[in-house]
Nucleic acid binder design. Structure first.
Length: 308
DNA sequence: AAGACGAAAGTGGTTGA
DNA sequence: TCAACAACTTTCGTCTT
């Protein structure tokens, strides 16, 4: 595709692997996901920063962003109206045409604005081109079907992007979308469900493994831990430990266990923050994993190993 | 002192009558 | 349409390292 990286920014190696399914480029030398690595640098401070901000926000007055008003501003509309008035006036034909023009230009204008917003959010999240295009497509369909009425343009954009991510197996959490678009998580979920239902887009529940590379990379966990985590998830799926559970929680727990076993321990809180779940959820999944899979021995083994 | 653990109560979404 | 239900969160006290 159009975007691809030649050198790994981490180790400078050129041994890069392009995983089409996941839309990721990973480096075979250092094991890190190159594209995601770049995301991390951006996101790391942003997430910390915005999480702190989000916490403040919960107790204080919401910070208002001018963007909202900009999106709904009407000053652009006048020009078009004036132009139309000059030439109209004479007969009904022109009136009709004017009316029609207005609608189509309204849609066009909305699209232009919305797609710009979509692009902004998408680049903030460093999403692959293919996902951005899919998002645009979904949004365009939604506008044509008049699904934006009664909803803010931004929330539909966020919903469309969220759906696009899921379809391409490059899932982002609702929290991440929420942070990038300044739309409430609830709202995004709502519009996401609404537009996918209305447009008849079917989306399979996302696979926990799809989150591993990204989470692991922002936690700076090595490739062995990553693949161990994926193995754990697969084992868990084999005995139906995963159905009905939130995929991010499972991914987080698997990663937590894998890190323990590889002597790269991270606290539950660290993992929880990255995955956008609580420690409690990690504990619950973690406990289930320990109960059903035979992981205790391995953990103890690696503990012993560490002491030496 | 920080992390891990688990109980209890609350939230929002899904499901089935 | 509403009530029961499961998953997850929040909060908080206690145990462990």
């Amino acid at each position: 595709m159009s975007m691809y990286v030649k050198k790994c920014p981490e180790c400078g190696g050129t041994n890069l692997a392009w995983n089409k399914e996941k839309g990721e480029i990973s480096c075979r030398d250092c094991g890190l996901v190159v594209e995601e690595k770049m995301v991390d640098f951006d996101q790391e401070w942003r997430e910390v920063d915005s999480e702190a901000a989000a916490r403040k926000r919960r107790t204080g007055a919401p910070i208002s962003y001018t963007q909202f008003d900009q999106g709904l501003g009407t000053d652009v509309g006048r020009k078009a109206d004036l132009y139309q008035l000059d030439e109209a006036g004479k007969n009904k034909f022109f009136r009709l045409r004017k009316w029609q023009n207005r609608i189509s230009t309204a849609i066009e204008r909305n699209l232009k604005l919305a797609l710009a917003e979509l692009k902004r959010v998408s680049s903030y999240l460093k999403l692959p081109q293919s996902v951005e295009e899919e998002g645009s497509r979904i949004y365009t369909l939604a506008v044509r079907k008049g699904l934006v009425r009664g909803r803010s343009m931004e929330s539909v954009v966020a919903g469309a992007l969220y759906a696009a991510c899921r379809r391409h197996d490059v899932p982002r959490t609702l929290d991440e979308l929420s942070e990038a678009s300044n739309i409430e998580k609830k709202e995004i979920g709502r519009t996401y469900r609404f537009i996918t239902r209305e447009l008849g887009i079917t989306i399979l529940p996302s696979n926990p493994s799809d989150y591993i590379a990204r989470f692991a990379s922002t936690l700076k966990l090595g490739p062995e831990t990553q693949s161990r985590a994926v193995e754990i998830i697969e084992e868990a799926q084999g005995i139906e430990l995963t159905s009905g559970r939130g995929p991010t929680g499972i991914a987080a727990a698997a990663l937590y266990v894998a890190a323990l076993m590889n002597g790269e321990k991270r606290t539950q809180r660290e993992v929880a923050d990255v995955a956008g779940v609580t420690e409690v959820t990690i504990r619950n999944r973690y406990k289930e994993l320990l109960d059903e899979l035979e992981l205790e021995k391995e953990i103890k083994k690696s503990k012993k190993k560490r002491k030496e």
